[in-house]
Nucleic acid binder design. Sequence first.
DNA 1: CCACCCTGGGAAAACGTTTACCCAATTGCG
DNA 2: CGCAATTGGGTAAACGTTTTCCCAGGGTGG
Lengths: 346, 346
Amino acid sequence: MAKRAAVSIKQLARMANLSIATISRVINNNGRFSEETRDLVKELIRKTGYTPNVAAKALRTKTARAIGLVIPDIHNEFFLQIVNSVEKFFFANDYSLFVCNTGEDKVRNRSLIQNLLGKGVDGLIYISRFPLETGEFPIPTVCLDRDSDQSEGHAMVSSDNLEGGRLAARALVEAGSKRPVVVYDRSDYVALSSVHDRVTGFAEVLAARGVPFSRQDVILTPATIPGARRNVRKVLESGRRFDGLFGASDLIAMGSILALRDCGFCVPEDVNVVGYDDISFSEYFTPALSTIHQDTAKLGTTSAKTLLSIMANKRLAKRHITVPVRLVLRGSTRGAPAARTRARHQ
Amino acid sequence: MAKRAAVSIKQLARMANLSIATISRVINNNGRFSEETRDLVKELIRKTGYTPNVAAKALRTKTARAIGLVIPDIHNEFFLQIVNSVEKFFFANDYSLFVCNTGEDKVRNRSLIQNLLGKGVDGLIYISRFPLETGEFPIPTVCLDRDSDQSEGHAMVSSDNLEGGRLAARALVEAGSKRPVVVYDRSDYVALSSVHDRVTGFAEVLAARGVPFSRQDVILTPATIPGARRNVRKVLESGRRFDGLFGASDLIAMGSILALRDCGFCVPEDVNVVGYDDISFSEYFTPALSTIHQDTAKLGTTSAKTLLSIMANKRLAKRHITVPVRLVLRGSTRGAPAARTRARHQ
DNA sequence: CCACCCTGGGAAAACGTTTACCCAATTGCG
DNA sequence: CGCAATTGGGTAAACGTTTTCCCAGGGTGG
């Protein structure tokens, strides 16, 4: 079966004594041809292992049947899960996906976008702290979890971050916290509406319930475990005290818990902690992390479906689609259902 | 700057009053042209924002300047890190990468490979439990962390799993374990030389040191946290006892620790545990996990470089390249350096 | 029996590149 | 000064598809 060297439509045509047009028609199942022709060609395709040359097809049809997905950081499990669900969806719809990891780097971001454009992708799902230059990007786009300029025919999909912030605040006060703080990455806060909204929702509920919370009650940190650990520890060592902590991501919350332990505080006895995202390790952290669960699968498929709609030139009911979040109570807040992962020696 | 609609070489040619051939020559910087021509064209390219149509280029040159990367499970951080380093390397070398996630599904695996072939990728990095059908895959390939049929001009890159297993065994006996067990996924063991080698190396050292270890001292489990937790717990409840445990992956080791805690055993006081991979959470698990560190970055770049060599038709010095591993001692084995993540209430 | 229409399928152009081949003009050399 | 070599660049074919336009032949209605 050393039939290598990529058979083409032309060869099939010769073998079948048909024209290439006919072959193309049965492959794409349009135009007219007889049943027997179809069977003959199908059989030939099977036998030769013919695979269409996508470059030629793309060139001719001016559509690559591919879409681009740009994400800031593939190491972040949150994005990863989104990649996964988007990829699954598009694979099922016979599109291929170019995943671009910008690493939060602005010039890489630009270069990757240029690259995608050159590849002739038919659509883009964009997750980045760098807004798309207006007019720069002439293809259907949905911005995920980030602000976007909606004037361009771009749509936006995001988690209900406002509600997420509210849920976190309620969880904290219901677990008995009287003096909560929030910890986030400063540049995320200014660049990302998602983080901004979380904090807004958080503050809103606190205000409504008469819990003291001001611009002081914020700890700034890079959004990593060691970063949060370091910065929260510094705050603790400076003598500031609090009994509730809302981390803008699970990583931040975990780092904060480590810092609290470093300084001799118990979670949740001394301070309740809630995170955000519900990454898979939250459940196995000690103590298991209470957190706001984001439905990454839905986020991904919703974006993908929305993009397909735009590409089909359908009018969208809404320009901004929001997917719900959910509070998951575990061991890092008091009164949570008995933690399944409690150690014996507690 | 509403200059949309993808300018082509032809337009550039018209604007510059040159032939398309000349434009192509300066773009690719081959053939001959004068300095001023070059400057003129470069300027035009800049001004129009011209991006080459990769489909046309691929069609003409019969090379997509792309390579395929198939991985079993994108959720697994180990593979993810490999993706990351491979991607970085190829981006730097101006190749683009198609990442295919098979999800350990055989038919998806085949379909994705067909797909890649159709896309005309120039090379493949293959990580999968399903061996490539011989003759089926006529392009340069390197198999990573898996056995491969080397007759096909495929190369193989892997971690030094044998040595990893040895290191794990030594760590366990040096932490005082007299009756160790190993826990792994049965089908991984049969399908994956990596897992097989780990336990071979493990058994080898144990035998050399006179520590009892037989085919009984194995616990079978799916390679996930909840799976390992369940299966190890079952074994513990059946009354079997051991004082050292080697998990074939960090996930397995973590699940095992959870099971030990569920049953009232302390790690590392009652049983020493060492994992494999050194995923990022190992450090933050409680207790922090002693483990065999795999150099994923090196694994990735080595594979990528090897692939490039094969593609350039260079003869390889070795067909099978091995990258070293390293033992990382943390809190899950006795006598380890004081765990940085120790909680106050211990 | 004629004028249609329908059905199955062929011919050829076009998509945007690259490249082999060709040619004119200039330069270099004896 | 005559001729060869070099330099700069043009022409056109080819890559594998899709698709528009066309045509032959057979069926059908009047």
